[in-house]
């Protein structure tokens, strides 16, 4: 039973992950008084990329070839550790919250190498900036993890999802984690997913040389990563979970509530993106410092039992 649920749940999240991206894009366009692409556009893109011809640079090596597999593999592995709207079905005894953050770093490390592998200045620039931002956002992520884990008494993700109460420190940590998500998923004000303008792109510059099925895999991995972060925030803000012998009504209620939270986070993300301008790269340091301060505040709030 458990195996089937785990496989089903994982497949479901992988299937639904691009939808979040399409949904955010749709809201953004509507807020800007545009009609925008359909919500299902990410699926059309992925399926098109999946059958397109791929061009690989002469200069690249096997690193370039295997990177999409590692990025996608790491994203799916991380996905398995995350509890969604019920506990008991994530493989949380294989790795905890710390491990999750490290696993996602593995994919990024290889992406950075692949960016350098093609001998293009764009790729190198993207790698450099991505590693810069991600290394500076890492402390914030760990502080947020510390704060919520201290509330739960464990770094185990299911224990965190089972806390029940919502202390102030968890809210602060969730906010810090939201800022981490903005950096990790390449959103305004740090990066812009929609641009291919040379001077502003970070993540897109790094994967500029990818095409065809490889690009589809990298994009899918990015959607999955976004889904993971959104689920984590949802799990921290609203620690609502159902323990195993459950009724169908409970499953439906949990799913609806969880889905509602994800939608809410997606709307907040979209509104944030539309309402502020992208920062210069070196201004991003201020943003990261602010998120770090939030992380510290979360731990401080936890230490005085708020």
């Amino acid at each position: 039973m458990k195996t089937i649920v785990v496989i089903g749940q994982t497949l479901l999240v992988i299937l639904l992950a691009p939808l979040i991206g399409g949904f955010i894009r749709k809201i953004k366009n509507n807020l800007r008084m545009r009609k925008g692409a359909p919500v299902l556009q990410p699926y059309y893109n992925l399926s098109k990329l999946f059958i397109k011809q791929e061009v690989v640079s002469d200069n690249s090596s096997w690193i370039f070839k295997i990177t999409p597999f590692i990025v996608l593999g790491a994203a799916v592995t991380a996905l398995l550790l995350v509890p969604f709207f019920h506990t008991g079905f994530s493989l949380s005894n294989i790795g905890d919250f710390f491990a999750l953050i490290f696993i996602l770093s593995l994919g990024r490390f290889f992406l950075a190498l692949a960016g350098l592998d093609t001998a293009s200045s764009f790729g190198g620039m993207g790698s450099s900036r991505e590693m810069f931002l991600s290394s500076l956002v890492e402390p914030t992520a760990i502080l947020a993890v510390m704060a919520v884990s201290l509330n739960a008494g464990s770094t185990n993700l299911e224990m965190i999802a089972n806390v029940g109460a919502i202390p102030v420190s968890s809210l602060l940590a969730a906010l810090a984690l939201f800022l981490v998500t903005i950096v990790e998923t390449g959103r305004i004000p740090i990066d812009n997913q929609e641009t291919h303008l040379e001077l502003t792109m970070i993540h897109e510059a790094m994967v500029l040389e990818y095409s065809g099925r490889s690009l589809a895999m990298i994009e899918l991995a990015a959607y999955i990563k976004q889904a993971i972060f959104f689920s984590l925030i949802a799990g921290i803000i609203l620690p609502f979970s159902i323990v195993y012998p459950f009724s169908y009504a409970q499953v439906l209620a949990g799913f609806a509530l969880f889905g509602g939270e994800i939608v809410a986070i997606a709307v907040i993300t979209a509104v944030t993106e539309v309402s502020i301008a992208k920062m210069r790269l070196f201004r991003a340091v201020d943003f990261l410092a602010f998120s770090f301060a939030l992380g510290i505040m979360a731990v401080v709030a936890q230490s005085i039992r708020l």
């Binding site: 597999f69 996608l72 593999g73 493989l91 005894n93 294989i94 905890d96 696993i103 884990s149 770094t155």
Partner: peptide, 26 residues
């Protein structure tokens, strides 16, 4: 007691499995 654990061999196995699966799909 607090259930925070790390099973690195299994983690590596899962990681390799999914990377392999991605390669197979590709």
């Amino acid at each position: 007691a607090n259930r925070a654990c790390l099973s690195n061999p299994l983690l590596a196995l899962i990681l390799i499995f999914f990377c392999g699966l991605a390669a197979a799909v590709y």
